[in-house]
Structure formats: structure tokens, C-alpha cells
Amino acid sequence: MSPPPTKLLLCLPSLLEHSKLKTIHLIAKRCAKIRLIMAKLSRDDILKLALLARLDLTDEEIEEFTVELSEVLQYVELLQSVDTDGLKPTNQVSGLTNVTREDEEIDYGYDPHDLLKNLPAVEGDLIKVKRMIN
């Protein structure tokens, strides 16, 4: 079978109508099946990601994210159909490279006590954290 048609994306704004959205989801899912990467996330995938991202999630969130994130990933997978032979990646669009400044001390006038004001826990002028090992 051929890769997902670009036509699929050309009608994407119509997803704003819910009935059409469902149809597109079906098409997207069908297309996803024929591709190398199948972005169907399992509960374990979500738990692993949550661990990597240091996020404590509720059971409800885990369930929701399993469905929602799979949908989003299936959508972005449409990029696999784009021919990008010979092209290099773009990291940034400022056109600037190697922005440097003189290696000298600059006084920005920040008061360290203003910075400490926002700390959840301090001891003197130090950041206080919970114990690291059990």
C-alpha cells in the first residue's frame, strides 16, 4: 500500500467540525497501521514517559493521555510521508551563529535576596531540599 495521501492533511481544518473529525481520526488510524512507526501508546509507555519527565500522574490522567497522546502522535506522523531527500534539519531561524560576548563580570543589579524570595524552602542563604537517598 502507498503511504498516507497528503490529501488527508489538506482537509484538516475541517476537523473543527466534530463529525468530520471522527472520520479523519479513522483515516489517520488506518494510515498509521500501514506505517513503520505505530504511535499507539500503552499504559506502560505513559508510565515510562511520566517517570522520565518526573510527573506524578493520576490514574485518570494516565488513561486520558494514553488515548490523547496516541492521537496527537498519529497526526504528527503524517510527516513521514514528506519527501525530504537531500535536506538538512533547521535548528533555529535567527540566522546568527556563535554569539559571544567579552568574558567579563557584568553587574545586572540583581539582589540575591530578591532571588531567594521565591524559594520554597531556604536555610540562611541556601536552598533547602528534601533528602536524596532513602
Binding site: 504528527v76 510527516l79 513521514q80 514528506v82 525530504t84 535536506l87 538538512k88 534539519p89 533547521t90 535548528n91
Partner: peptide, 8 residues
Amino acid sequence: KAQIVRTK
């Protein structure tokens, strides 16, 4: 891949 499509 996204960065390459960005170039395109």
C-alpha cells in the same frame, strides 16, 4: 524529521 520538514 520535523526539523528537516521545517527546512522544506
